[in-house]
Amino acid sequence: MKNISRWLYTAIIMFILWVIFTGKLDSEELIAGVVISLVLALFTYRYFTEKGLLNLTPKKIFCGIIYFPYLIWEMIKANLDVAYRVIHPKLPIKPGIVKIKTNMKSDLGKLLVANSITLTPGTFTLDIKDDTLYIHWINVQTTDTEEASKAISGRFERCLKRFLD
């Protein structure tokens, strides 16, 4: 039962991508898309998803829709920050590597936290070991693990936890 739900979830995502890429809504195209995505999903669902159709509850979709504009806004701030440092003739940087703790349990959660950290102001993820993330920070403000966690990843985890668990 669980596997069927994972299979259907993969097929739905593949079919949406098929419709976007062919760009037509003829019946032949749609039938070919359904058949091909069902067959391909049969081979790939075990690498693609863990929870299957449970990912499509309205609450999660809503949190996802909230999360992406927030991420893009953070990216814009990050880029203005880096652009300022690049243009400034003296290169005002104070780089270093700090470690922080994350509360996320699942692999997908850790991936999303790491990606978000990489795209936001002045930080990128160097390595992950269990629940410890090693962050390269372009302008180190604190070397304490607790404070650094709060400053870097605290804001994301609040939204992502609701999105994933």
Binding site: K94, P95, G96, I97, K99, V140, T143
Partner: peptide, 12 residues
């Protein structure tokens, strides 16, 4: 190596 300007390296 990190650059000489670096202040901390907890990974190392």
């Amino acid at each position: 190596k990190l650059t000489e300007k670096s202040v901390v390296d907890q990974y190392g």
